[in-house]
Design a protein around this nucleic acid. Sequence first.
DNA 1: GCCTTCTTGAGAATGGATGTCAAAACCGTT
DNA 2: AACGGTTTTGACATCCATTCTCAAGAAGGC
Lengths: 133, 133
Amino acid sequence: MQRMTRQRAAVSDALEDLDDFRSAQQLHEILRRRGDNVGLATVYRTLQSLADGGDVDVLRTEEGENLYRRCERREHHHHLVCRVCGRTVEIDGPTVEAWANQVGTSHGFVDIQHTIELFGTCAGCADAASAQD
Amino acid sequence: MQRMTRQRAAVSDALEDLDDFRSAQQLHEILRRRGDNVGLATVYRTLQSLADGGDVDVLRTEEGENLYRRCERREHHHHLVCRVCGRTVEIDGPTVEAWANQVGTSHGFVDIQHTIELFGTCAGCADAASAQD
DNA sequence: GCCTTCTTGAGAATGGATGTCAAAACCGTT
DNA sequence: AACGGTTTTGACATCCATTCTCAAGAAGGC
Ligand SMILES: [Zn+2]
Ligand SMILES: [Zn+2]
Ligand SMILES: [Zn+2]
Ligand SMILES: [Zn+2]
């Protein structure tokens, strides 16, 4: 059974306050600044546990780092992430869900899963970049 | 300019003979068994270079390992991979391409990219598993 | 408060990947 | 076919996110 500890609550609260994907190390640092000292190993364990329970979403960066985020909806969904500022939009795609299953099934596959993530530059960051010229 | 070396040719040839995604370490071992001794660092460098040039595709496993494969088509496509035996089917999806761009654009994002991979259990592996019972 | 069980955390260990740099290999030129 | 500037190689060290270890500490049922 899962026990409620000061550390678990601290990690969970920190995620509540943040709006975009953060790494375990970033969260560890954020907690330290806040005064909530939590061991790094514990941050890793807690995030993994929260992810397993479906309480937070995980995103793997190009560099192989795991980022975590507490999303609005607990149901299956995807993300559109700004590669500059990290701003994240939750995406709901009945179209792709159906497409993925149909493609898999048509090739004789079963237990089909999919990984879908969208990346781009958000309007704000695109404006900032063009103003730079 | 890119020089042709024994090592680069060996890695490229090995990929030609294989049909599913392999890691740098697996390829290194395959080459060693074959008698083509190539340093591990060189295998890593060559694979990355081939991937940059669009000659091979890269897939990141759940465990954070990079897998490489020489695909039939060089154009943009996706993969349906058997999580048991690794059998891979190349997927062409005009539907999702359009969907991804449309979703990104509708949220004001530009330079939209996407990561889409499908995983499942292929017919052969599903049969083998059910025969197990 | 007691006691069993789960959790924590500092440091070590893991493992894929990359950096280092002298020696070896390419390859256009002579 | 030897030359020589430039690239590539490879054994090894290093990096770095993540996981492991395990004794000490905390939860929470009674
Ligand atoms: Zn989400
Ligand atoms: Zn989906
Ligand atoms: Zn299979
Ligand atoms: Zn695509």
